[in-house]
Design a binder for these strands. Structure first.
Lengths: 164, 164
DNA sequence: TTTGAATTTCATTTAATTTTGAAAACATTA
DNA sequence: TAATGTTTTCAAAATTAAATGAAATTCAAA
C-alpha cells in the first residue's frame, strides 16, 4: 500500500489515536447537526502538528477533492478552521482553530438563536390573533413564550462557560 | 371536505394558530435531533384541550397509523407524552407533558451526556497510549479533556434553568 | 371462544441528505 | 500566453433516515 519513493507532501497515515479523536469529533459535530466529513476534516486538522494542504486532507481521510473543498469552505466560514495563503507557495494551508468558542458559537448562533428569536415574534403574533376569551389557548402560548425566554437567558450562560 | 354527520370522535381540523405552534415545535425538535412527525405529534397534543386518541392524531396530522404508533411510543418513552388507559374505554388517550423538563432531559441525557462520558473514557485511554515524549499529541488530548470537563459542568446548569 | 376495532411491527417505499466525480474556473510559472 | 496543477462548482449517484401500508398481534366485548 505504501509507496516508498519520496512523497511530494508529507501525508503520514493517521495514527490510531488520531482515528479515535476523529470518531470523537464525529459524535460531537453530529450533536451540532454537522455531517461526518466536516467533523473529520476538522479532526484531522486538530490532530495535525502542522498546517495541511487540502490535498493532504483528501489523502488522509480518503475523501474527494469536492468534499474537502466544500467542507473547508464551511469550516472556514464558521471560523473553526483558518486558511493561510503563504507567499511564494501555490497551495493554501489550513489550521484548526483550537478554542471551542467558534464551534459553540455556530451551534448557538446558527442552530439555536434563530429558532428562538423567530419563535418569539411568531408567538407574540399568535397570541395577538387568539381571541381574548380563549384562555386555554392563550395560556398555552404564554407557556411557550416562557420557555423561549428561559432558553434565551441560558445561552449567554453557556457561552461564558466555554470562552473563559 | 367535512362530513356533517355526527363524528364518532371529536377531531376538529387544526386552527391556524395550531399550525404555527406545530411549526415551532418542528424547529425545536429538529435541534434535538428528532424528526418532524414526532414534533408534530407532540405539538398537536400540546395544543389540544383534551387528551387525544391515536386515531385523532392520525386524522389531524394526516399521518399513517404506523407513524403515530411509533411516534407515540418514542414520546411516551421520553416522558414527554403520557398515555392513559381509562377503565371502560377501549382506546388509550394521550396527553402532552407540559413542562419542558423531559424534553430537555432527553437532549441532555440521550444526546449529550453519553457522548461526553464515553468521550472521557476514550480520551483517557488515548492519553495513556501516547508515548510520554509526544508532548504535542498529549497536549491536544488534554485540551479535549478540558472541553469535555467544561461541557460536563455546563449541563446541570442548563437543567436547573429549566426545571425551576 | 369468536369477532372486530385498534394498535404494533417491520419490510418496502419515499424523501432528504451527503458524497462523489467530472467539467469549469483559477492561479502560478515557464 | 500556454502549460500545468489546484480548487471550486454542481448535477448525479450513493447513502441514510423517515413514513407508509399491509400483515400480524392485541384486547375488549359479544
Amino acid at each position: 500500500m505504501k509507496d516508498s519513493t519520496a512523497p511530494k507532501t508529507s501525508a503520514p497515515e493517521l495514527a490510531p489515536w488520531e482515528h479515535e479523536v476523529l470518531e470523537l469529533f464525529v459524535g460531537m459535530f453530529e450533536t451540532f447537526g454537522l455531517p461526518k466529513s466536516i467533523a473529520m476534516i476538522y479532526g484531522v486538522l486538530y490532530c495535525s502538528d502542522e498546517p495541511l494542504y487540502q490535498e493532504d486532507i483528501c489523502r488522509r481521510l480518503e475523501i474527494s477533492a469536492g468534499s474537502a473543498s466544500q467542507g473547508l469552505k464551511l469550516l472556514t466560514g464558521l471560523g473553526t478552521v483558518h486558511r493561510q495563503s503563504p507567499v511564494g507557495q501555490r497551495q493554501s494551508v489550513y489550521t484548526a482553530e483550537r478554542s471551542m468558542r467558534r464551534l459553540l458559537g455556530y451551534f448557538i448562533d446558527v442552530q439555536l438563536r434563530p429558532r428562538l428569536s423567530t419563535g418569539r415574534e411568531r408567538l407574540e403574533q399568535i397570541l395577538h390573533d387568539i381571541p381574548e376569551e380563549d384562555d386555554v389557548a392563550r395560556n398555552k402560548i404564554k407557556v411557550l413564550l416562557d420557555w423561549q425566554h428561559k432558553a434565551d437567558r441560558a445561552l449567554p450562560l453557556i457561552s461564558t462557560l466555554f470562552t473563559r
